[in-house]
């Protein structure tokens, strides 16, 4: 393995960007391919598939074997709002393998007693998201019902190309939200990426049930993430 490849791969992982190490098992040569890098032919198909599934594999192409070792950043879930739904969501996210954090400037809500064992920031979203930026491997769910808090995070989530953006609220609340985001200059296509009403439609009623619906929607978005991420990479390239 070329030490330069290792360095490059580690830099990508550090920056929470997806990359894969392609090794030709015939001659041992390797190279790093970043998500969105153009790769032609059958190998290109295998590379795209690997990024999509996040699974490393051995592929045979035209008599040669290649090993594709995929390094996809671990998915993160940022929840805006230290509310009842978030209390139920925290353990679920952990079980599903998501690194979850909660941001809520309302110190009465964001208390360690209500949220043991989870990263909790009792500050404004824009301040925390400045220090801990969002990225395409992060899901954002806004659940405070307070536009002052929710909107800041929504703006940043749309700009960062988060693989999932969900917002709690009735259709009426969401219609008002859409108007505010339009006024900020977001296009209808961008705004349409927001999942609202939040969560898969399973008829959820209690906070815990809504948390299940949200978690399921996040997982669904992550597994179908390929297209959206590719679009974002094209835009920012």
């Amino acid at each position: 393995m070329d030490p330069y490849c290792l360095k490059k791969l580690n830099a990508e992982r550090q920056a929470r960007r997806a990359a894969l190490l392609l090794t030709d098992l015939g001659d041992g040569r390797d190279r790093v391919i970043k998500e969105g890098d153009p790769v032609a032919g059958l190998l290109g198909d295998a590379v795209r598939q690997a990024f999509l599934s996040g699974k490393s594999s051995l592929v045979e192409i035209e008599g040669r074997s290649f090993f594709l070792n995929v390094h996809v950043p671990p998915p993160r879930l940022v929840v805006i709002g230290a509310v009842h739904i978030s209390q139920a969501l925290a353990p679920m996210a952990k079980i599903a393998g998501y690194d979850m954090e909660i941001i809520d400037p309302r110190t009465a809500f964001a208390t360690p007693e209500r949220f043991p064992d989870i990263k909790l920031f009792a500050e404004w979203p824009q301040d925390i998201l400045e220090q801990r930026p969002l990225d395409p491997y992060t899901a954002v769910a806004v659940v405070t019902h307070d536009p002052k808090i929710d909107d800041q995070a929504l703006e940043r989530a749309l700009q960062a190309g988060c693989f999932y953006v969900g917002a709690l609220g009735s259709r009426k609340t969401h219609a008002k939200r859409v108007e505010r985001l339009k006024a900020l200059g977001f296009s209808e296509d961008e705004i349409a990426l927001i999942h609202s009403p939040i969560g898969l439609d399973i008829g959820a009623a209690s906070p815990a049930e809504i948390a299940v619906a949200v978690m399921a929607e996040v997982i669904k978005a992550f597994r179908a993430r390929g297209l959206q991420t590719a679009r974002h990479l094209e835009k920012t390239a």
């Binding site: 393995m1 070329d2 030490p3 290792l6 090794t23 098992l25 041992g28 051995l58 090993f67």
Partner: peptide
């Protein structure tokens, strides 16, 4: 399992 072993560098 199949394990590929290579030298770094």
């Amino acid at each position: 399992i199949k394990v590929y072993v290579e030298r770094l560098g």
